[in-house]
Amino acid sequence: MNYTLKIWRQKNAADSGSFVSYKVENIDGETSFLEMMDVLNQQLVTRGEEPVAYDHDCREGVCGMCSMYINGRAHGPNELTTTCQLYMRHFKNGSTIIIEPWRAKPFPVIKDLMVDRSAFDRIQQAGAYISMNAGSAPDANNIMISKEAADAAFEAAECIGCGACVAACKNSSASLFVSAKLAQFALLPQGQVERYQRTLNMVQAMDAEGFGSCSNTSACEAECPKGISVKHIAMMNRDYLKATMCSEKVMS
């Protein structure tokens, strides 16, 4: 199959950037989207041009590095799929594919399709943990957790931190990401001690990074490759409200 690619090229953060068209030919349907990009980059390198920069690493949908906005959708047209697990059989022969980086102010472009998502790290540094030094844990089965709670926490914890939720949101809100991180801990007994302080700290960090507010369109959930639910946002908002109205020490 043959495709025309319109790809965002931007030398560095200071450059203004623009779309550049390329053609790729004889692409097999079993080629992954990133392997198709490899084919393009091979062509560019052969011609002595700089390849398109994009983030990717594990190519099995879990590291969260890949981050392309494809035909106006984060990670492309398929549901519950990261760019690295998207296959060319889902694109019509002869079609034009538009590829952009995540677009959000707190995710500045580094180069081409690569953006800086270190804001996510900083938000997590603000409180996405249970304060627990190595060596002081009780026996694992001393903490009994219902299967339902463990499963629910796991569902939240499956977030890969790719940032598709932010890219998909018209407000560039990070609410889905932050709430998933909060929910994992809030749903487990181990997370209760610091629950409300954690919520306060992380929500404040999220705001400080310049992410927008949530206006409940659920675009984030629709585009999340891991299917993280917006119900976590409701939980975050409830916890935040409680935390701001009461002393967190009493709450815990």
């Binding site: 009780p138 926490a153 487990l188 181990q190």
Partner: peptide
């Protein structure tokens, strides 16, 4: 090996559980 599991559970790693709540 056992202390690792203790450590991870205390950190909030959501390991699979039986219905009774044990790992």
């Amino acid at each position: 090996s056992g202390a690792i599991i203790d450590q991870c559970v205390a950190q909030g790693v959501p390991f699979a559980r039986e219905y009774g709540g044990t790992l």
